[in-house]
Each structure stands twice: as C-alpha cells, then as structure tokens.
Amino acid sequence: MGKIKKITKWLLGIIIVLYLCLCGFYYFFQDKLLFNTSAKLKPEHVFKFSEPFEERYISMPDNKKLNGVLFKAKESKGLILWFPGGRGMIDSIGVDSHFYTDLKYDLFILNYRGFGKSEGKISSEKQFNQDMQSVYDYFKKEYAENKIILLGYSLGTGPAAALASANNPKVLVLQAPYYSIKEEARRGFPYLPIDLLQRYEFSTYSSLQKTKCPVLIFHGDADKKIPVAQSYELEKKLKPTDQLIVLKDQGHNRFLENATYLKKLQQLIK
C-alpha cells in the first residue's frame, strides 16, 4: 500500500512539473505563437508588382525601422492603411492591391517588427501599439486624417481598432476580427490559466467602445479559424450607425473573391 502511495505521489509530482513547464513555455514563447515571422525577408529582397508602388521605411521611437509598400492610385482620394494577419507577407497581399487602388485610394501594407524586411522584435502590446501610432503619425504628414482608412485583417484587427480609438480616421474596417486575443487564447488553451499567463490582450471590444469613426466589420460564416460568433459579440459594442456584414460561405481568407465584400466596401468608402 505504501509503495502505491509513493508511486502515486511520484506520478503526481511529474504531472505538476510538466504542467508548470507548459505554463512557462506558453508565457515566455507566446510571442512566437502569436506572431509568425517565418516569412522574414532579406534586406536586399526586391518586391515585384504590376501596380505602381514604392517602398517605405518608417522610423520608430527606438530607431528601428518598419518596412512597407505603398501602392499608388491614379487619382487618390486618400489612404488605406492595411494591418495584416499573423504572417504579414506583403508579396502575396500586394498582388491584389488593384482592388483597393481601383477604389481611388492609395494602399499601404505594413510589416510589423520582425516581419518581412522590418527591423526589431515585438516584445509587448504597448510597444506594438506605439509602432502603429508612429506609422499613423507618419502618414498624417501626407494625408489628411479624415482621408485615412484603417483596415485590419485577422491578427491586425485588434491593433487597427486600438489605433482608431485613439485617433480620428475616416473609417475603420475589420476583416475576420476577434473579440480579444485573451479570449482567443482561452478558447485555444482551455487547460491553461490564461488570465495569469497572457501578456497580449488586444481587446478589440474595448477599443470599439471608444471609436468615434464609422466601423464596418466583415466576417465569414464559414470561418474556422476565428468563428463568426466573435463578431456577433463585437456587434454589441458597435454604434447604431456601424455595421456587421456576415458573408455567406466565406472562410477566413480570400475576401476579395467575395462580390458582397467588394460592393459593401465600395459603398462605405466612396
């Protein structure tokens, strides 16, 4: 009997140690889980697009430089600031730039720290949001604030919403947003004490409550990565004049192949 108790205590001890190791791994490596910088590009990488474009390097307060590509419309009415998902990948996003420049808006696609050709490393939510504000301030020197549209996709929706809540852009557009990163973490890791471990919150819902500009949310009812239920919850935080558009049979990607998305976007930003 005593031997069984010893074995039980030994196994229990191993389980506790392994669980604590798992918690420690999540706490210290959640940056890598959240931000996929595998698409890192060499500084000499050459972007190739059929549409007119120019590269921009924007200095941050700590002198690190973020890289992005600005696509120019023939007759520009303003700027769309695109905040991408967790992989960035300007090369793939940029091939569809004409959908936005055809709406007579310039389009800037940003790579976050450590993504693409951008320098530095993401270390906190505060730093991330400060970077986004620096990018916004940079473009306010070229475009009137009421002609700047913020467009966030997936991971980029939280930062885009936070930026909109602290400024006065023309419109905030969110594609496949989450209620908050903390809620996403709870859904993905229900066995971990997320409230103690999560260092990034990106509370989209709280930002929307403070956003003055018009908000348009697009979400596919077939999205398996971020369920449309997240947007239904966000809808409760919207102003009466804001809109949630649920796209039938739309997944997490390929919004530009959806005619309803293109039509609604054109109506909003005309």
Results as ranks from 00 to 15, higher is better:
148 I>G: 06
3 K>L: 15
89 M>T: 12
166 A>F: 00
185 A>Y: 14
55 E>Y: 06
257 E>Q: 12
46 V>W: 02
110 L>A: 08
217 I>W: 00
32 K>W: 13
58 I>R: 08
227 P>G: 05
79 L>T: 04
263 K>M: 12
39 A>Y: 14
6 K>L: 15
179 Y>A: 07
257 E>C: 00
99 F>P: 01
139 F>S: 05
261 Y>W: 09
19 Y>L: 11
196 L>C: 10
246 V>H: 05
259 A>P: 15
66 L>W: 02
116 G>P: 03
98 H>A: 15
164 A>L: 01
27 Y>I: 02
185 A>H: 13
136 Y>H: 10
97 S>Y: 06
51 E>N: 13
233 E>K: 13
41 L>E: 11
177 P>A: 11
143 Y>S: 04
162 A>L: 13
69 V>Y: 07
136 Y>N: 07
218 F>T: 04
34 L>A: 08
53 F>N: 09
226 I>C: 04
171 V>K: 06
124 S>R: 05
249 D>T: 09
218 F>W: 05
258 N>D: 15
215 V>D: 05
65 K>N: 07
133 Q>D: 10
180 S>T: 06
261 Y>H: 09
122 I>E: 09
68 G>P: 08
94 G>A: 07
179 Y>K: 06
200 Y>Q: 08
254 R>H: 15
106 D>H: 01
19 Y>W: 13
75 E>W: 01
153 Y>L: 07
26 Y>I: 05
